[in-house]
Nucleic acid binder design. Structure first.
Lengths: 356, 356
DNA sequence: CGTGTATTTGAAAGGGTTCAAAGCGGGTGG
DNA sequence: CCACCCGCTTTGAACCCTTTCAAATACACG
């Protein structure tokens, strides 16, 4: 169960509060002043801290300040207990980044609600999302769940698309992001010379178009078209931005994800510049596999046109095909009747993707 | 001066408050109930809204809800006026995303402070930062200024680096970001084959290493080394994360910037895949110029080694040199004695960078 | 003023693209 | 149900851009 550190100088309040919390199955650690509180926080790494403001030795602000400095304790949810509605204290507290405050005397329910709420938020923050673009999809799902935003994907906007239909096109105004219920979708950018560079492949459960909604110009920066018949649900921009900007936890988490995206992209850029097509092909195959788009025991795999596969690697269609046949001859992959790919030797592919 | 919309049903309070605000030179628009308030908000697009919670026709929550729906009014700072410290109301308000609340009766100063603070925040949000990586530097500066974080660049960590010295290296633990006071710095990634891909060039006023601090692994993802003797000041990770995560305005703004970075990077990726070296060279030159690293009336320009310039384009040193001499013969650029570049025909370079 | 490093030029080799043509497969209509 | 046709895939060969290796030249620094 979750550990809570309670820092409070008044013995009555301290014991009373501890009792309430223990009845709810929290493990409670108590400290009778700020100094001891900081020590115990470092020692026990609690899941949440309740802290009085007015205390001898080191006051609440001091405790918070001190714990913020250590990265081990900086992210622990922090709730202030204020003696009475001391307006300036509360304001000061919120400004320096305390998560919540409770005015004494508080109701049992009030206390427990606040704690439960914070611990839930903290759990959300601790959750890891994969660093690839599709990590954003997991994230939006979790976040909308966490904020109970049923408005997202209200099912009222569900639409069916056929293969080769466009969902949105590069350069048009971005009003919606899209959630894929079923089917497969590719997003791509077209160059002046008419080549298509595939920026992503998406399947059920993925969101597409988020990035365009965040861009300066409010235009879609890529085109999305359907690879295999799909059911797709549009989500208004407003719902998305509300989700993203409206809540501190969500926006901070989003920064993490998108930062990792950026790092990922940098790596991709280096590959593009200096890796041979052979290496990039191996990488692309592994990536497809990782996304569950390659046929294996669990997945059906998608039937991806060679042209699109080439666009994913950033090479000509013929070259991509040559690489695939090369891999086939080496026994690394196999091609089924309807151009579906199967990976036979993942280890060797990894080797190629790293060392050539 | 700034326009403020005051929605309040009690005539005394309304007139009194309006007087205070007008004395401070704000333009005040008043509304006596929620419904009229919403109408006036849409019509006048005020810079800030003060709104009572308990009102006939449409209460404060309703007004807020309704204005959030329209993107014209959604980003206007919103302050609630609560009759008395109705705890649940306050909490509900903060949860749905109201910016602040004031408890009636309030002091003149309290009101004016809250308003000034919100308007300042709103100005910060409206500010545009350039979408390139260096936009992040502007942003950090503005943000630390806005939060009055003098701790950042406290001058206590100022260090001198000589040409070719490393500031940090790829793969080591990231504890700090760095602020460049003077000199020039390059960041790059090294491939297995020993090539260097230059990920950025930075000058006075730029921050480097931010992205690494945000990455999952907490390692620097690139190496930074000095091009021309520099004075650099280290900023602890904690100060940066505090700045970034501690404040909703700042983190939301950061999302905008970094999203645009991502879009920018995508474009770069497409170029890498399908553009000729000639095109990419032209783009690199224009980018250097845009960053003020090329010699012109205002800037001294940097003396960039050809190897690094090649790393920026993602090509071999010899090829980069060949392109530069080609441009020189075409009269597009000139090379000064100490390998400093000068742009002679920017228009033509732009043409090349777009159409080849 | 010499020495070592960075830049520039030259020429050959290699990887990838492009153009052309042949194969394959799947859907459609008789 | 079969034949035909169209579009996608595959293979072949020539060409071109870029890299690589080699050598000459320029430049900066002690």
């Amino acid at each position: 169960m979750n550990k809570i550190l309670l820092i409070e100088d008044n013995q009555d309040v301290r014991e009373n509060t501890a009792d309430i919390l223990e009845l709810e199955n929290y493990t409670v650690i108590t400290a009778e002043n700020g100094k001891i509180g900081v020590e115990k926080a470092l020692k026990h790494a609690p899941d949440l801290i309740l802290c009085d403001i007015m205390m001898p030795e080191l006051d609440g602000f001091g405790v918070f300040e001190s714990l913020s400095k250590n990265h081990k304790t900086a992210s622990i949810p922090f709730i202030f207990l204020t003696a009475k509605s001391e307006k300036t204290d509360v304001r000061k507290g919120m400004n320096i980044g305390v998560d919540d405050y409770l005015t004494k005397p508080f109701e049992e329910d009030e206390l427990l609600d606040a704690i439960a709420c914070r611990i839930k938020k903290s759990d959300f923050l601790k959750k890891e999302f994969s660093k690839n673009i599709e990590g954003i999809s997991e994230f939006i799902n979790e976040a909308s769940d966490y904020l109970k935003l049923e408005e997202l994907s209200n099912d009222r906007n569900l639409e069916k698309y056929k293969t080769k239909e466009y969902i949105f096109t590069e350069g048009t105004a971005a009003h919606q992001l899209y959630f894929i219920q079923s089917g497969n979708v590719k997003t791509y950018r077209t160059t002046e010379s008419g080549k298509e560079f595939v920026t992503g492949l998406y399947g059920p459960g993925d969101f597409i178009g988020q990035l365009s909604l965040l861009g300066d110009k409010g235009l879609y920066v890529e085109t999305a078209s359907v690879l295999e018949d799909a059911e797709i649900c549009g989500i208004p921009k407003a719902d998305f931005t509300k989700l993203l900007y409206g809540n501190k936890e969500v926006s901070n988490k989003f920064i993490d994800i998108i930062s990792n995206n950026l790092i990922d992209m940098q790596e991709h850029l280096v590959d593009m510049a200096y890796s041979t097509v052979r290496k990039r092909t191996a990488k692309a195959l592994l990536e497809l596999d990782h996304k569950g788009l390659i046929k294996d025991s669990k997945h059906t795999g998608i039937s991806i046109p060679r042209e699109d596969f080439a666009g994913l690697i950033g090479t000509a269609t013929e070259t991509a095909i040559r690489m695939l046949t090369e891999f086939k001859h080496e026994g690394l992959i196999d091609v089924e009747t309807n151009r579906r790919l199967v990976i036979l030797d993942k280890e060797r592919l990894k080797q190629i993707s790293e060392f050539g």
